[in-house]
Amino acid sequence: MTARRALLEVKNLAYGTPDGRALVSGLSFTVDSGAIVAVVGPNGVGKSTLLQVVQGETAPTAGSIERAFELKHLRFLTQLQNREFHLPLTLRDVLSFSAGVPITDSRVRDVGLLDPRHLDLAWNTASGGERQKTLLTKILLDEPTFVVLDEPMNHLDADGRKLLRDALRRHVASDERGVLMVCHEQAIERDGWPGVVTIGLKPSAAAD
């Protein structure tokens, strides 16, 4: 078994909203290879902003972030905008947008979220859960070193959430990979994600 190493190190991080309102301060945590880290907290506490800071899209007001990978090896899935798209894409079309090698049914099956028989469904008539699983599959097919997910359990039913948990575990089990996601605490407690490191964010008044 290979030794774990830190893929992402966050030290004494502080950040706020674009209009200057402080959100979080003194935040420190590490995402090791093979780990799934879930940042939980109530609405408006700064979970999604943390993901922007981790990706370098928003500058922190204090602290540091060290990444042991290049940003091109990071894949981010934002909260699903569950809306229709003008072009009449199939789920297979969406997967074909993935970079790298061609999409085959066996590769989709290996990821374990989608049934390849459903790939010819239209994006615009697919359920929110099918859309979410398609986007998650698209990301995992790229085999990124580091995956960042914003509320990945949205739109998924209990079976879908279990499939997601297993898919993420398989993803981090091979090579040196890690996952950082934000979600609501109940989502982790409800389904039981053994081995997942949970970090709680508190509202700014408490954090400060």
Partner: peptide
């Protein structure tokens, strides 16, 4: 186009 509209 897809990333712009669906993935913001």
């Amino acid at each position: 186009s897809f990333e712009t509209m669906i993935l913001c």
